[in-house]
Simulated assay, not measured.
Amino acid sequence: MKDLQNFKKIVVLTLFVFLITNNSEAHEKKGSCSNHETFSFFCDLCGCSTSSGSFGFGTLSNANFVGVRYIYQNFESKNGIFENSPISKESFNTYQLWAQIPINNSFYVSANLPYQDLTRDFNNVKENINGIGDASLIGWYKLPFYKKQDENTVDFNNEKIASGHSLQFGVGVKLPTGKFEQRLSDNVNPGFQVGTGSVDGIFSLGYNYGGNKYGVNTLISYYLKGENKNNYQFGNQLSYSVNVFRAFSTQKMNIMPFVGISGDVYNEIEQYGEALKDTDGTIVNASFGSELAIEKFIFGASYTLPLSQSLFGDNVESKQRISVYVNFAL
């Protein structure tokens, strides 16, 4: 716990130094956001009910990349109906290999492969499970919008000028590469799993705007959960997110602090065709963070706290999420 507190302090201090440095030294360039207009989102964890699909898969810079990301989440689950019922404390550590690969100017593919390390502490007894999680793959089509040309202006090059507005359409799949254990489904928080054991469909629609200094990105995604070999089916999930960022640029680096709101709506879990009581829920989160690009390297960090939540009959409480990543732009 002490190490986690120190880690949180380092993340916050790093973001603070980034912002101060760029406010005092940055010389803004016109069009600095022209290549930073998309914040892609994806189901980034194992796909279980307490794993948020609105946490993010892409980066603010929208660069094509390969990289690694670390995500920390923790939960508290009440094992009983009384106020003094014992509490289970759960820590989710996820280590991801992730990438965004271009196909052409309109299409690209996002992929990630997570490694899960989950710990549960209940009545001073610790339980740990770890292993490869569920891999994900999604294809994206980007539809940009262009400025309307002045009828009185003759353009011999016939080049379209980007307006900064665009739509994104994504269709993907989550694969059952992570292990699902039936015995763990009896926990108050059934999201305590390395994987789901099911094939899930992912359908996304996003709107993005990037101007000279400011950008806005929104995304709504629906996760159609499949049934695994244990006849266990996590509830379908609706995720949404809105983020606003500000770009500061110099000749050597670009920094984009952001703030955002995101949320998830979970349907009930089903087993053998029967809905399980108190397995649905909703959560709304606020987050802030920043991304720093230096030549081919992209560094990012974010911190997320719930604004409101009602998970598993209010028996599970999400506490916080922290993410850091390092990418190499392609």
Rank of each mutant, 00 (worst) to 15 (best):
I101A: 14
N84L: 10
K89D: 01
L60G: 07
E37W: 14
V66D: 00
I71S: 02
N124C: 02
V66L: 10
G133C: 04
S52T: 04
I71Y: 08
V66W: 14
P114M: 09
D44S: 13
L113P: 05
S40C: 03
F55T: 04
Y95A: 03
S136D: 01
F57Q: 09
D117G: 00
P114L: 10
E83H: 02
G47S: 06
N74T: 03
V125H: 14
S77T: 04
N123C: 05
L113V: 01
G80R: 15
N104D: 13
Q116F: 12
S49R: 05
G47H: 11
N74P: 02
S34R: 14
Q73W: 00
P86D: 13
S52E: 04
N35H: 10
V109E: 02
G56P: 00
S51R: 15
Q100T: 09
V125P: 00
Q96N: 09
N128R: 14
P114D: 01
H36S: 08
C33Y: 14
V66F: 12
D134C: 04
A63L: 07
K126S: 05
F42V: 06
S49Q: 07
S88Y: 12
I103H: 14
S91R: 09
Y141T: 02
N64Y: 05
I81G: 01
G133T: 05
S54M: 02
N62I: 00
G56C: 05
S32F: 06
F55M: 11
D121H: 13
G56N: 12
N105R: 13
P144H: 09
I87Y: 03
I87E: 07
E28P: 15
A63C: 08
E76R: 15
I103K: 08
G80Y: 06
N124T: 03
F145E: 01
R69K: 10
E83L: 10
G31V: 06
I138D: 00
A111T: 11
Y108A: 00
S88F: 11
W98S: 06
K142N: 11
L97H: 10
F39R: 13
I132T: 12
N124E: 12
G53W: 13
T119V: 09
T119Q: 13
G53H: 12
K29I: 10
I132K: 15
R120W: 09
K142T: 04
F65L: 06
N35G: 08
E37G: 07
F145D: 01
S91K: 08
K29N: 13
S91D: 10
L45G: 07
F41S: 11
F122D: 04
